[in-house]
């Protein structure tokens, strides 16, 4: 690729990033036909190059096909930039997310995905009430619905929302849930609740004491 072509590609990638990230007042992401209008018919190739570049800094381009048009219709698909790697539990508090709200979201999504993506709201609230008071559950569901993670239908059925389709890997979440066990929960609990320093000290002390008799 000549220097001039490379320069053009760089410029197009910058345009693509601006279109996808700086969507202003609208909802995130951009449709394929909008990218085609600004970048030309080769926009999928430009997005591929952009994806490779973004991966170097822990981001990637995510394509979400239009459910009615199917995966081959890129014009109607929507393009987003998402994180490439999972966040750490310690990042959550730093980024300002509420741990309880994410726990409610996690349980809700896993339950909905295991029930073919929808369930009556009453049933869902009853399930979540085993962990949190009703007012808190209802407030969280309301907020998560507003943010697009959940969708509330007229007939009192909650289903997964557009943001879940973009941000959450269904199979990965269910696999993670399948591997949860009470024993692991306790271990994880110690590691997390004690924090980095406390957990390390505990492990060392256990190690020392176990080495003693030998």
């Amino acid at each position: 690729m000549s220097g001039e072509e490379l320069g053009k590609l760089e410029k197009k990638m910058a345009q693509a990033v601006a279109l996808i990230l700086a969507s202003g007042h609208r909802l995130p992401g951009v449709r394929g036909w909008e990218l085609r209008r600004r970048l030309g018919k080769n926009f999928p190739k430009i997005l591929n190059s952009l994806d490779s570049r973004l991966k170097q800094i822990g981001l990637r381009v995510k394509t979400v096909p239009d459910p009615e048009a199917g995966p081959k219709d890129l014009d109607r698909a929507r393009f987003y930039i998402v994180l490439q790697d999972p966040l750490m539990l310690s990042d959550i508090q730093t980024l300002g997310y509420s741990l309880d709200e994410l726990a409610i979201l996690s349980a809700t999504l896993a339950y909905l995905l295991a029930k073919n993506s929808s369930a009556p709201e009453k049933e869902l609230v009853e399930m979540l009430e085993t962990k949190y008071p009703r007012w808190r559950v209802e407030a969280a569901i309301e907020r998560l619905t507003r943010r697009g993670y959940l969708n509330r239908a007229e007939d009192g059925v909650i289903s997964i929302g557009w943001r879940t389709l973009v941000e959450v890997d269904k199979q990965e979440l269910l696999k993670a849930f399948a591997s949860l066990s009470p024993a692991e929960t306790l271990e994880g609990d110690v590691g997390v609740s004690e924090g980095g320093g406390g957990g390390a000290v505990d492990a060392k002390e256990q190690g020392d004491s176990s080495q003693g008799p030998t």
């Binding site: 959550i92 996690s106 999504l109 959450v168």
Partner: peptide, 16 residues
């Protein structure tokens, strides 16, 4: 915390 840890494995938030 365990529920959130499971969720984080599957969650890739949108950047904007």
């Amino acid at each position: 915390k365990s529920l959130v840890t499971a969720f984080l494995q599957a969650w890739r938030p949108i950047v904007r």
